[in-house]
């Protein structure tokens, strides 16, 4: 064991203080990023990729139909109208599908929103590819205006055969304050 201080008691103390500071740092520099990396890599928590899927020309599986349900939720205190224009779609794995979500800001002032997707069952997340999604970016809206937000996705042909229904849920958050105060939110 390396001696840091000639006094054995102080030596032990210095080492242990270092360990506790290191553990405090460990939470921020290891646990938080590692959690994000693992969730992205493994599709845990129904988290889908935050980046557009660059589609490879895939064969469409005409024999199989997968039901896609869309759910839209407003986070606590979010006043927007927010809902899918189509609630349910039946799609072939491999095919490119388009739909839009409707959003309206009923307040007089401009706002910025962020939609966060989640796929259920979580196992399906890695087979649900979004080539275009409004959730990749923040959505600003002037007061009392509405918009249609596009979503384009492909269900992977490798989707396990026992999964017949996938639910894609979006929760919309008010991030106006966050954007305005320009606090970098990681």
């Amino acid at each position: 064991m390396i001696r840091i201080n000639a006094n054995p008691v102080l030596d032990t103390m210095i080492k242990l203080v270092t360990v506790s500071i290191a553990m405090f740092a460990f939470v921020f520099v290891v646990m938080v990023p590692l959690y994000d990396v693992l969730c992205d890599a493994l599709g845990i928590n129904g988290k889908t990729s935050n980046e557009a899927y660059t589609s490879v020309a895939a064969q469409v599986d005409q024999d199989r139909l997968v039901t896609i349900q869309f759910v839209a939720t407003n986070n606590h205190g979010m006043p927007w109208e927010f809902h899918p224009t189509t609630n349910v779609m039946k799609v072939n794995p491999g095919a490119v599908n388009d739909t839009v979500f409707f959003a309206r800001n009923p307040l007089p002032n401009a706002m910025v929103a962020q939609a966060i997707p989640s796929v259920s069952p979580a196992r399906a997340a890695e087979y649900f590819h979004k080539t275009e999604c409004f959730c990749f970016n923040q959505q600003p809206l002037d007061g009392d205006t509405s918009t249609e937000m596009p979503l384009q996705f492909i269900v992977d042909q490798d989707l396990p055969s026992d999964i017949r229904t996938i639910t894609l849920s979006y929760t919309i958050f008010d991030v106006t304050d966050m954007v305005n105060s320009a606090v970098a939110a990681r």
Partner: peptide, 27 residues
């Protein structure tokens, strides 16, 4: 115990300093 301190520090930052460790709105 430092891990607990880290957890409550993140809470403090989320509540008062605009971070989003535990808020899906900010990632």
């Amino acid at each position: 115990m430092p891990v607990l301190a880290g957890a409550v520090t993140m809470m403090l930052m989320d509540v008062h300093f605009g971070t989003s460790f535990f808020s899906a709105a900010g990632g």
